[in-house]
Design a protein around this nucleic acid. Structure first.
Lengths: 200, 200
DNA sequence: TTGTGTATATTCACTGGTCGGTATACTTTC
DNA sequence: GAAAGTATACCGACCAGTGAATATACACAA
């Protein structure tokens, strides 16, 4: 699948993605990206105006795959909407156990570029998180949570980004599971009760 | 209060704190810190082994004040424990509206140094967050949440760090208030019901 | 088919400046 | 005089970004 040999530009972005995600934005030099992509720095600057431009391209490229991963985890989980959202957190907990996992590239970049609120990379991060929140909202609206869908989706985003951040710092993926339980509880509270179903 | 002219070392750490928090760790050079502290770089290296050492000192210095701020906000809020925890989030929402607010220095440093798990600055961050979580646990244990105190405290940490992160990215402090509502709900669910008190 | 013009893509070599860290010597304080 | 603290000047490595020349590809005319 996905034939077509990657363009030079794509190879640059994908080399940048690996290095930026692994080591951080400012820790990676343009020279390092060029070398990893197997081209010269001058060629990189032919395809991108600046390092900032490259950073933005790196995050924009992660938008769709990241969201699709969440949707995939959701669709594969069993149960009602609360269980399925919890399933996303559980899958994330597994992902976080991979030794090369380093949290969320969008959030880490926002942290590193906190001093540049208008930076295109940060705008890409905002757009991505909004798409995830909108997707959560859709999912919840289709599940009878009344008019709470948007507010609930915001709570899920808070738990999700909180978990990504906490686990990155503490290196304890069990926080991801705690977040999943909290998410399920909050959703269940807004769900119409099928008879006597209570907690747990 | 707090008389005693600050030592050279203190002035260095406090200059570093301002710059590191404002612009990020890697974006700030040792030269910049030395200049801000009004000393030469050689003097800085007399007091600190390395830049990494200085970073760790910056975060260690923030541990107590940060926790004390949370405790202060909590103690000033009215109502039961759920309301008071919510008060912390509301106060934080106000703080986040300050133009120079840049999120949580511990989390931002963890994001920037994600590739160095053993870094002393990250250890300082883990220790700080553990102290906050332990304090939450104490507060909840004193409030009859049964054996849920630790788990609830972890959920509060997730919401707190989530809010700090989301608001840093999105620049929308209302997420802090959403987190506060979620926190209050989660606590209320574990609280013994005083007769008929419901939500809201 | 061959030659040529043009836009795209790439390379090598380089710039001015900054980085973390240091060698050495001077000054202050006890 | 000894120890602690500070200053000047410097190091080699690396940084983001650039100038000028070159290579490749394809369009179109002879």
């Amino acid at each position: 699948m996905s034939g077509a040999i990657p363009s030079t530009r794509d190879r640059i972005v994908s080399a940048a993605a690996k290095l930026f995600y692994r080591e951080g934005i400012r820790a990676v030099s343009v020279d390092a990206v060029a070398e990893k992509a197997g081209i010269t720095k001058r060629t990189l600057y032919y395809h991108f105006e600046s390092k900032d431009d490259l950073i933005a391209a790196y995050l924009s490229m992660r938008d769709n795959p990241n969201l699709a991963q969440f949707q995939n985890w959701f669709s594969k989980a069993e149960g009602d909407v609360a269980d399925k959202v919890q399933g996303v957190f559980l899958a994330l907990a597994q992902a976080a156990r991979h030794p090369r996992w380093k949290g969320c590239g969008f959030l880490r970049t926002a942290a590193e570029l906190a001093n540049m609120p208008g930076h295109p990379a940060i705008k890409a991060g905002v757009a991505h998180k909004k798409r995830v929140e909108d997707w959560f909202t859709d999912v919840l609206e289709n599940a009878d949570v009344g008019d709470q869908a948007r507010q609930l989706a915001r709570q899920l985003i808070l738990l999700l980004d909180g978990a990504l951040t906490v686990v990155l710092l503490q290196r304890d993926p069990s926080y991801m599971e705690t977040a999943g339980q909290a998410a399920r509880l909050l959703i269940r509270m807004s769900l119409p009760k099928p008879e006597d179903r209570c907690l747990s």
